[in-house]
């Protein structure tokens, strides 16, 4: 067993108070931009929830795990087809759109569920702003 303490910089995001604080702020600001946002979560690449939007009752832990799988599978498809870096993942369903994207420079994914009152384009732009904001706050 490896008992060497991890260096401070290596604190996992879901255990890192700075990342949690930044995540809460990012999602709150995101909600102010879009009333159609019904759920949002920031998660580590390996599927741990860092934060989710307050007041929603979806199972955040499970959503985080599924989002991380979906993200990785999409990356694998992009890699297989040699179409460059995967920028967004969109799941457009009858009653809502899920939009996922990476927080640049960090092993963190933003996943957001919008109801269908939002156009996909607006959802994408809000998600992009939020991901950039998160990157800024933890830079």
């Amino acid at each position: 067993m490896n008992l060497t303490p991890a260096p401070v910089a290596a604190i996992a995001s879901h255990l890192n108070p700075v990342h949690i604080e930044a995540g809460n702020r990012t999602l709150a600001e995101m909600q102010d931009l879009a009333s159609s946002l019904t759920f949002a979560s920031l998660l580590t690449d390996d599927g741990f929830e860092i934060v989710h939007l307050n007041g929603t009752h979806a199972d955040g832990g499970r959503f985080a795990s599924m989002s991380s799988s979906v993200q990785a599978l999409s990356d694998a498809v992009a890699h297989e087809l040699k179409i460059g870096t995967n920028e967004y993942v969109i799941i457009a369903s009858e009653l809502g759109h899920v939009i996922q994207l990476r927080v640049q420079g960090h092993p963190i994914v933003l996943a957001a569920l919008f109801d269908t009152h939002e156009t996909l384009g607006k959802g994408l732009s809000i998600a992009r702003i939020a991901a950039r904001r998160m990157a800024e706050l933890i830079a």
């Binding site: 996992a12 741990f48 799988s69 990785a72 599978l73 990356d75 694998a76």
Partner: peptide, 9 residues
């Protein structure tokens, strides 16, 4: 085909 992510655990 692999789907490896940074391990935080």
């Amino acid at each position: 085909v692999s789907t490896e992510a940074t391990n935080t655990d």
